[in-house]
């Protein structure tokens, strides 16, 4: 047996002290990054003296300087101010979309699992149908139905992702429905709504948290991708995908223009992915395999 293979080494079954420390460290880094992003989203506008939408044509395409730290774009707008405002847009869209998704998942999946029978069958066939669409194509289609713009992007993403959430909630509810403690609650006279909200819902939350945190990066990429194609958030809004789309005509002359918004998007997606991985390892130890979505 060659020594180059280590699948049987104890470390694969029992994480060493060092690996546990490193796992904790990445959790803290992820938390710090996400906290930083949330801070910028909430207070970013105050960090820059410039209006992200103020057009100043004489200063167009200015290089980085003491006044404009990252320079200006083709309309003379301060890039840093637009990046900061873009954080608010991205995180705002994600927050609203996720709330919608969680609500849809809990209502549809929860009632399907809890009520069961006919209703469950119909709800699950609906999720089957939605899952036959590739997610991005489905959001493109939803945009075609609803039209472009900030609100419609949120709706489009929510309508194209909800089936995953409904499935997860349903499966947790189904697995717990016939446990003794639920029967005990029922015999103690608890109503259906109370049983659902007090005894079933809390158990679904950890699974939902894992799915949602791993999905955030995905949602961000979809939103920016749609905006990049001109189908998402409309042009003057400083969204990162919009900024990238604005920068594309200057790839040859001003390559720095496309560096910053892409980097902002990349770092944000990475931060949430890290957090998602950490949450999964903590809340869902059985799920050792990589999560697929």
């Amino acid at each position: 047996m060659s020594t180059s293979s280590a699948p049987l080494s104890p470390s694969s079954q029992f994480p060493s002290q060092g690996r546990l420390l490193r796992a904790r460290l990445t959790t803290y880094i992820a938390l710090a990054l996400v906290a930083g992003l949330v801070f910028v989203a909430l207070f970013g506008a105050g960090l820059s003296p410039f209006d992200p939408n103020a057009v100043a044509l004489p200063e167009r395409l200015a290089p980085p300087s003491a006044t404009h730290w990252l320079g200006t774009d083709h309309l003379g707008r301060d890039i840093l101010a637009r990046l900061l405002e873009g954080t608010r847009v991205s995180l705002g869209v994600v927050a609203v979309t996720l709330s919608l998704l969680l609500a849809m998942g809990i209502v549809v999946g929860g009632s399907a699992g809890f009520i069961g029978g006919r209703f469950d069958q119909i709800a699950m066939r609906m999720t089957d149908i939605f899952l036959t669409f590739p997610t991005f194509v489905l959001s493109l289609f939803m945009i075609g139905m609803l039209g472009t713009g900030l609100v419609n992007v949120i709706l489009a993403i929510a309508l194209s992702h909800w089936a995953w959430y409904a499935r997860i909630v349903r499966s947790v509810v189904l697995s717990l429905k016939h446990r003794d403690y639920i029967s005990a609650a029922r015999m103690a006279g608890a109503g259906r709504l109370r049983i659902f909200t007090r005894h079933l819902l809390p158990s679904t939350l950890s699974q939902l948290a894992v799915l949602a945190s791993l999905d955030i990066g995905h949602i961000m990429l979809h939103v920016s991708g749609l905006s990049f194609l001109g189908l998402g958030v409309a042009a003057p809004t400083p969204e990162w995908g919009v900024m990238l789309s604005d920068a594309r005509q200057f790839v040859w002359t001003q390559p720095m223009l496309m560096l910053w918004p892409g980097l902002a998007l990349f770092v944000s997606v990475m931060a949430f992915n890290l957090l998602g991985d950490a949450l999964r390892d903590r809340l869902d130890p059985q799920l050792q395999r990589e999560h697929m979505h």
Binding site: G262, V269, N273
Partner: peptide, 22 residues
């Protein structure tokens, strides 16, 4: 893989053009 799963494909496209074409 760590960087790959977070990389926006359209940004990567730009970066590749920048490096290998420009």
């Amino acid at each position: 893989a760590f960087f790959g799963v977070s990389m926006p494909n359209f940004w990567l496209g730009f970066l590749l053009v920048l490096l290998f074409s420009v």
